[in-house]
Design a protein around this nucleic acid. Structure first.
Length: 484
RNA sequence: CGGGGCGUAGCUCAGCUUGGUAGAGCGCUGCGUUCGGGACGCAGAGGUCACAGGUUCAAAUCCUGCCGCCCCGACCA
């Protein structure tokens, strides 16, 4: 069969051919990011920033609703502060960037560029906290951090990246645990209900735990290539940082005690998950709640006929009046180019408005979540009803996209039946491989050597079982997968 | 950081083996015809061939170094 003269999609390779190549092409062609002239760093372009802002809004609103306040701590951390928590230092030292000079003068003490802020926040909390009446402290900051990474990819791992880091201090361990669980649940909710990315929540194994934490919990999403992506973490820090930075308070019983701290973060890596999970051969697909633009109106204008453009402007005003994030594309391009362009950017609904539509008093709505020609992908709506119909349609698209992604996760989560199958599935990169696990670091290390996969996260075991990786008694259930 | 690959126009790439004044398609600009799925015609713009040395009468091409990107691995809360 002859190839069509015009391929369905120019610009990017098919998603199924090479996910990595597709991913990078989409990030650049949809104008989310550009490579910067600094190794391992990206420029977040306006459309990418708008997407980030949607995530920020969803999280920030929930942080505030649970009693947190935003603040800002310094970018630069004196070396002596960093050195105080031993495990933490060892965990981060390979990734820390240092400032050694101020102007031409060599500094007497190096300054670390924050890879995370526990150690600059610790001394401040020590300063602010005197009594149990000062607790809890519930602070979040929206900042950039720098980690010197060997290998970088847009959003997934870059030298400098944007995130939020919450840092709280509590009077008791149970209270700190409660906070950690609460924030993990917010991450789960934002990932699933806003970004439409289904995730597994659970605790990290000891080898995957945050340096300096007593417990680390994560949300883990599954990418189309069968690799998992850690998309948010919540750490119980016990009294480790309190001891290192001398954060003490007078308790009700007048004893002097160390506080219990937590930290939790979600970065723009979440956007990487969204891109990979939802995108298709035509480019991005934005879940409506994350979409910077919910709908775009494309006027189909015949030469010398300006009735269409006027009708389109009226429609735009109507939709904006309904609080929808809409745009009218008046660029001097042919409609087909505009269709392809907005599909690449993943706008959930395209409104086509031409002379035929106007004559019939309607507009044509096209859903980005449906494949071309798929039933229900295109609907005709009376002009007066577009706003209300669109609101309902956006809900439907959101639900449909989450259902599609959930179906993928479900069908790629496999409970291995025996040890041979377990190793086989991991080598095949078949997805989240679910087994009863012994919880031993040596066992996890062995699996990693054999398959390059590790535990993603753990959850309680129901009943007695044997570890399917090594045959020792199991203590938990674990998802294993290769990770990004 | 180890192994491999690649750097030529905004993008995808040819040219390099065998040294001799820089190419194509797409995109971009202007004008016109078009406009319900990536139009067409005419006219144009655009490149220190990643960078630095070396060999040579002459280097995109050969040699050395270096930087960057991609893939695999290590590393990576």
């Amino acid at each position: 069969m002859a190839q069509p003269k015009t391929p369905l999609v120019k610009e990017i390779p098919p998603k199924g051919a090479d996910l990595s190549e597709w991913y990078q092409a989409v990030c650049y062609k949809a104008e989310l990011v550009s490579l910067a002239p600094v190794r391992g760093c990206v420029v977040l372009r306006p459309y990418g920033f708008a997407l980030w802002e949607r995530l920020v809004a969803a999280l920030d609103e929930r942080f505030k609703a649970t009693g947190h306040e935003n603040a800002y701590f310094p970018l630069l951390i004196p070396e002596h502060l960093l050195l105080k928590e031993q495990e933490h230092v060892e965990g981060f030292s390979p990734e820390v960037a240092w400032v050694t000079h101020g102007g031409n003068e060599r500094l007497s003490e190096r300054l670390a560029i924050r890879p995370t802020s526990e150690v600059i926040i610790g001394p401040m909390y020590a300063d602010w906290i005197r009594s149990y009446r000062d607790l809890p402290i519930l602070i979040n900051q929206w900042v950039n951090v720098v980690r010197w990474e060997k290998r970088t990819r847009p959003f997934l791992r870059t030298t400098e990246f944007l995130w939020q880091e919450g840092h709280t201090a509590h009077a008791s361990e149970p209270e700190a645990r409660e906070e950690v669980v609460r924030m993990l649940d917010i991450y789960r909710e934002v990932a699933q209900d806003i970004a439409a990315v289904p995730v597994y929540t659970g605790e990290k194994s000891s080898s995957e735990r945050f340096a300096g934490a007593t417990h680390t919990f994560s949300i883990e999403a599954l990418m189309p290539d069968g690799r998992a992506l850690q998309s948010g973490t919540s750490h119980e820090l016990g009294q480790n940082f309190a001891r290192a930075y001398d954060i003490k308070f007078a308790a009700e019983d007048q004893s002097l005690q160390y506080v219990w701290t937590t930290s939790w973060g979600m970065s723009w890596r979440m956007l990487g998950a969204l891109i990979m999970v939802h995108g298709d051969d035509r480019g991005l697909r934005m879940p409506p709640k994350m979409a910077p633009i919910e709908a775009v109106v494309v006027p189909i204008v015949k030469a010398g006929d300006d009735r269409v453009i006027h009708a389109a402007r009226d429609l735009l005003a109507q939709l904006k009046g309904s609080g929808l994030r809409v745009r009218l594309d008046e660029r001097d391009l042919r409609p087909g180019n505009k269709f392809a362009d907005w599909e690449m950017r993943g706008v959930p609904i395209r409104v086509e408005l031409g002379a035929n539509d106007i004559a019939a008093g309607v507009a044509t709505l096209v859903r980005r979540d449906k494949a071309k020609g798929e039933a229900g992908g295109k609907v005709t709506v009376a002009l007066a009803d577009v706003a209300s119909r669109m609101t309902a349609l956006l809900e439907e698209i959101q639900t449909n996209m989450f259902a599609q992604a959930s179906e993928f996760l479900r069908t790629h989560t496999i409970a291995a039946g025996d040890t041979a199958e377990f190793f086989h599935l991991l080598r095949e990169r078949a997805g989240m491989i679910d087994i009863p696990w012994c919880g031993r670091a040596q066992c996890e290390a062995f699996v990693k050597v054999e398959t390059s996969a590790t535990t993603r996260n753990l959850r309680p075991l129901d009943g007695a079982a044997t570890c399917l990786a090594c045959g020792e008694p199991a203590t938990v259930r674990a998802y294993f997968a290769q990770s990004y």
